[in-house]
């Protein structure tokens, strides 16, 4: 396989899977947040790859990538402060400390 669009797409698929496995399997809230960051990055690869490989409006995919980076920064700030608040309230940041809603 050469440097084709599908190799970038498959790579982003793998990154998304790794991030999702991190979110599903880890108990640590910080690790789960990092997994979400990996999933956002996988989407970013797709956007940049499609911006490079298609020739309609070449700049627009990168603009969307910039928006994703901004949203990820806001998400990290708010998410980590939620982690901090959980640690202050429960003394732990494992998801086990937060299972009141469990059926």
């Amino acid at each position: 396989m050469s440097e084709a669009l599908s190799s970038y797409l498959l790579f982003s698929c793998a990154m998304f899977a790794v991030g999702l496995v991190g979110v599903l399997l880890r108990r640590n809230l910080v690790a789960m947040l990092i997994g979400v960051e990996l999933m956002l990055n996988a989407v970013l690869i797709n956007l940049v790859a499609f911006a490079r490989f298609t020739d309609g409006q070449p700049g627009i995919g990168q603009v969307f990538a910039l928006f994703i980076i901004g949203v990820a920064a806001a998400e990290a700030a708010v998410g980590l402060s939620i982690v901090l608040a959980v640690h202050k309230a429960r003394g732990a940041i494992s998801v086990d400390a937060l299972e009141e809603l469990k059926g």
């Binding site: 084709a4 669009l5 599908s6 797409l9 698929c13």
Partner: peptide, 11 residues
């Protein structure tokens, strides 16, 4: 993804 993108190389 493979069926959509195929082996299209970078233009």
């Amino acid at each position: 993804m493979i069926s959509v993108a195929g082996d299209a190389a970078a233009p």
